[in-house]
């Protein structure tokens, strides 16, 4: 049985109690704005009623209001891919997305990736392949890499040859330079998920 990848608690520190406290602070994700909007976000299949600041980006709401620390903040400017999540089945950079605009969308984070695709939590073929191929060093970019990889693998318009995959994955930077193993993992997961296609 493949080992389970647990949602990371992130580089930050947050006891469950502290999380609850943050969640009650309506404007935690921006800290600057007093007017909040009430929105319903569907994250990993669960609906959440939230008070969110107009300028809060999805990344901060996921981490600070919902306590989903698997999604990482690398650059906060669309330049690294660490914050990649799925919105309506497509990979996106959650650091450049307003949370308020996602009302009604289906959002999937690394914590819900496996279950969203019908696997047991932590057992998405991409997760298993990353473990098998040692496709990380520090692990900071890993959640984003896996979210992009899963979307790329299920995208019929992206071919499985090395050039196409490298191009499709290029929005996810790995400071540790684990690219070779990442590519191996993605190719292996793709093979398992799509067979010869």
């Amino acid at each position: 049985m493949a080992p389970v990848i647990r949602p990371s608690t992130g580089v930050g520190f947050c006891t469950p109690g502290a999380q609850a406290e943050i969640a009650e602070r309506p404007n935690a994700a921006s800290g600057e704005h007093s007017d909040t909007r009430r929105i319903t976000l569907t994250v990993n299949g669960e609906q959440h009623d939230l008070h969110v600041a107009p300028n809060a980006v999805l990344l901060d709401v996921l981490r600070e209001q919902l306590g989903l620390f698997g999604t990482k903040k690398g650059c906060d400017h669309g330049q690294c891919g660490a914050c990649t999540v799925h919105v309506n089945g497509r990979s996106v950079n959650s650091c450049l997305m307003l949370a308020c605009l996602q009302e009604g969308a289906e959002i999937v984070t690394i914590e819900g990736l496996a279950e969203s695709a019908g696997f047991e939590q932590g057992h998405h073929p991409v997760q298993a392949a990353f473990l098998e191929h040692d496709a990380y060093q520090c692990g900071y970019c890993t959640a984003g890499q896996m979210m992009t990889a899963a979307a790329v693998i299920s995208d019929d318009s992206i071919d499985g040859d090395e050039t196409s995959l490298r191009e499709a994955l290029s929005g996810n930077i790995c400071r540790c330079g684990a690219y070779k193993n990442i590519l191996d993992a993605v190719q292996s997961a793709r093979g398992k998920m799509r067979g010869g296609q």
Partner: peptide, 9 residues
């Protein structure tokens, strides 16, 4: 241009 994720947005 940009990346898979950014082009989706």
């Amino acid at each position: 241009g940009a990346s898979t994720g950014l082009r989706n947005m």
